[in-house]
């Protein structure tokens, strides 16, 4: 029994959200790799036209087509897809009305832009509809993807984005778009789905995470795990860290140590100690934030701060940590 399997035994659609700047795309990518380990196939989807996945994996911009972006340890594979709302609408027109060619002409007229604008919920239904389709797709009686990971809009917009029936409900009470949105909602509300939240150990992202969990729960959407990103270990020994946060870290002890190492203790001890105190304060804020997250009683996964801008190889390191924590 593994952690993700234990916490969300049936989850196949993992929706990853978080406050801007918390690294939700990174976590979504690492999760897609971790879930692909051991010969599985996962699909990583983005919906905001940012091409964040392509940048992370260091591949050319993704077309509106599922494309392999990585091979996971143990012969797994990760495919990626950037869902574009216009293309999704054309797809939809084609499937339900056989209108592919007319669709192209309409696109030129700006009509597609218009249609997604006139009914804002329509756009979200098309995007989530595509995600649902990939999640439930089968080929020769087998699931095409073992898991689908969605790099979703940020916490501020996530509930509205996922609550498609409510959005469309005000507009379309009958018709294919209504049944489409009902179908999407059924999957999103089921145990097949888990909405995960990414946060940093800072006050604002933690608050947004807590608020989003409340909103999601109130809407009946299944809240998944909290991924704590970029956590820093304390470099100071525990007792010294406590002294530092209380403002009682001995400069003279540091000075003596610096002299021992052949450095100018007199000149360096004070500013270096001040830096250490600030570091300890930041660490204390981290601990308080972690406590607040614990109070919401969701499973948590913690990932360390990695040095430098995140690149492709970092994704595998993070995936390995997740895998080690039982995500598979």
């Amino acid at each position: 029994m593994t952690a993700i399997a234990k916490d969300f035994p049936a989850a196949r659609l993992h929706i990853v959200t978080g406050k801007g700047g918390t690294g939700k795309t990174t976590i979504a990518a690492a999760l897609a790799i971790a879930l692909a380990c051991g010969g599985r196939r996962t699909l990583l989807v983005e919906v905001e036209g940012r091409q964040g996945i392509a940048q992370l994996f260091d591949v050319p911009p993704l077309p509106y087509r599922e494309k392999r972006v990585a091979v996971a340890p143990g012969r797994g594979e990760v495919l990626a897809l950037a869902v574009d709302d216009e293309a999704a609408l054309l797809d939809y027109l084609d499937i339900f009305y056989g209108l592919r060619r007319a669709g192209r002409a309409l696109r030129k007229m700006g009509a597609i832009d218009f249609a997604t604008a006139i009914a804002p919920g329509l756009r979200d239904v098309l995007l989530t509809g595509k995600v649902k389709e990939a999640t439930t797709r089968t080929s020769e009686g087998k699931r095409v993807y073992d898991a689908v990971v969605l790099d979703a809009p940020p916490t501020g917009r996530i509930t509205k984005f996922l609550n498609v029936t409510a959005e469309v409900g005000g507009l379309a009470k009958v018709g294919p778009i209504k049944s489409q949105s009902d179908g999407v909602m059924a999957v999103l509300r089921s145990s097949q789905t888990a909405v995960h939240l990414v946060t940093l150990l800072e006050e604002m992202p933690v608050q947004e995470t807590i608020d989003a969990i409340a909103d999601l729960s109130a809407t009946g959407l299944p809240v998944g795990a909290v991924f704590i990103n970029a956590a820093r270990p304390s470099l100071l020994p525990a007792a010294d860290a406590r002294r530092a946060t209380a403002g009682r870290l001995g400069v003279s002890r540091v000075a003596a140590g610096l002299e021992l190492a052949g450095l100018d203790g007199k000149a360096l001890a004070k500013p270096l100690t001040a830096q250490a105190v600030e570091d300890a304060q930041r660490y204390a804020i981290q601990n308080e934030s972690r406590e607040r997250i614990r109070e919401v009683k969701r499973p948590t996964y913690e990932l360390p701060l990695l040095a430098g801008p995140i690149d492709r190889s970092d994704l595998f390191e993070l995936a390995d940590i997740l895998h080690g924590a039982g995500v598979r």
């Binding site: 100071l236 010294d240 140590g257 610096l258 190492a261 052949g262 450095l263 250490a276």
Partner: peptide
């Protein structure tokens, strides 16, 4: 380098950590 020196000496965890933070 200084942090490594102190870590080898032992008993200088605080200063070594302060240097590592730097």
């Amino acid at each position: 380098t200084a942090a490594e020196t102190l870590e080898e000496m032992g008993d200088q965890e605080l200063t070594a950590a302060v240097l590592r933070i730097h």
